[in-house]
Design a protein around this nucleic acid. Sequence first.
DNA 1: TGAAATGTTGGGGCG
DNA 2: ACGCCCCAACATTTC
Length: 472
Amino acid sequence: MRAPIIVWFRQDLRLSDNPALAAAAASGDPILPLYILDDGGRAMGGASRWWLHGSLTALDASLKAYGGALVLRRGDTANILSQVIAETGARSVYWNRCYEPHAIARDAAIKSGLTRRGIAFQSFNASLLFEPWTIQNKAGGPYKVFTQFWKSCLSAAAPEPPQRAPDVRLFAKATGDTLAAWRLLPEKPDWAGGLRENWTPGERGARALLDHFLDEKLKAYREARDMPALEGTSRLSPHLHFGDIGPRQIWQAARTHAEPSANLDRFLAEIGWREFSYHLLFHFAHITQRNLRAEFDRFPWEKNDSALAAWQRGRTGYPIVDAGMRELWHTGWMHNRVRMIVASFLVKDLLIDWRAGEAWFWDTLADADLANNAASWQWVAGSGADAAPYFRIFNPVLQGEKFDPQGDYVRRYVPELAGLPAAYVHKPWTAPAQILRDAGVTLGKTYPLPIVDHAKARDRALAAFATIRKAG
DNA sequence: TGAAATGTTGGGGCG
DNA sequence: ACGCCCCAACATTTC
């Protein structure tokens, strides 16, 4: 028996468009598919763990169809790899690249360890259309402005077409954990009902969602993408995070499915924002912790635990904000337009540090992704690259009325307001007493009064912004 | 990938 | 008929 190749799965939990797996399969050597759960890094949130369970289940099932099985190990990544190499006599390890700072450092250490022991390794790109070091501005540096970045990407060499799932014929075996033993699913209480109703983790679920989006949604994408009551977006973000699907597959499917159009360009540009986040994180690794724009280090954030808690639980008294936060809590996901609204509210109306919002999203989003999360929060806060200027402050009432005109989104996630007519559903405190009574709403009791006055909060935010602008 | 404040314009009411 | 005022409606500027 020939020595096996370990295919180390990470954020590429799929068989198609998986260059590491394809290369291993092409070698003709037996393949040992391995996934390592390493609790050493930033702890995964509950919704992410739920999703990971589903993706690993699906990947294992796909491998079993070929007569293989996914080997699960838990512990320090480098130690696990050493053990598996020793146990199986593997002579090489293939994987697809990750781009988070800790992953880069970890993988560098692993590579030197493998080199020392004479174990071959190869890494591939499965997760990005344009790897961060391949795109640079005229000065040879990283981009800090999205439109320029994306223009540069679009004029660069086109992404490789995705590869089909290889016909894997030969597997190596090794012992491993059962997935159940990892206890990734919530037990007492089982809060994952909303996730199960909304999502099908894994490669097939991702492909079905993509096809549905291209068939039904793309033609109206530009308008519908901002309406949270509609399913106008692809909802692929958690699948992309775990690698149930890769951006090359989305890119190719979208471009072969649809004629060139503003809708298509806009959709691909959203994939571009993901690329931009990875570009930023790679070149400015500190953005997960620190402001990209240093003048924000002086920003007078306020510590306000009760306001933070009200925001987290969807009890701010602003219906569109509360609907978004409850959608997140219930489904592990939030519509993009609403993410911007709730983030603006936290940072600008409550003056709470974006890092508190980033941490909450990290804990609760199924698509929690270091690059996207940090870059997007800094974008909203104004401290990031190509950021919204700080004075661009969303009015939660106007945003609600503009993007959820009938109030359907609010009614879905804030059922205690469901009886209010559209004219008041985004500002219940302005409703006449009789209308509130008819709707069964008692403000301050069945639904909170606004925890801040937006007009005052806006003035306060502008004043806070002025303090860092003058000084710097 | 805003909103509010301020400025401008033009139609209609009215003396 | 004319000038004046009011104020939507729209545009521009500012935060």
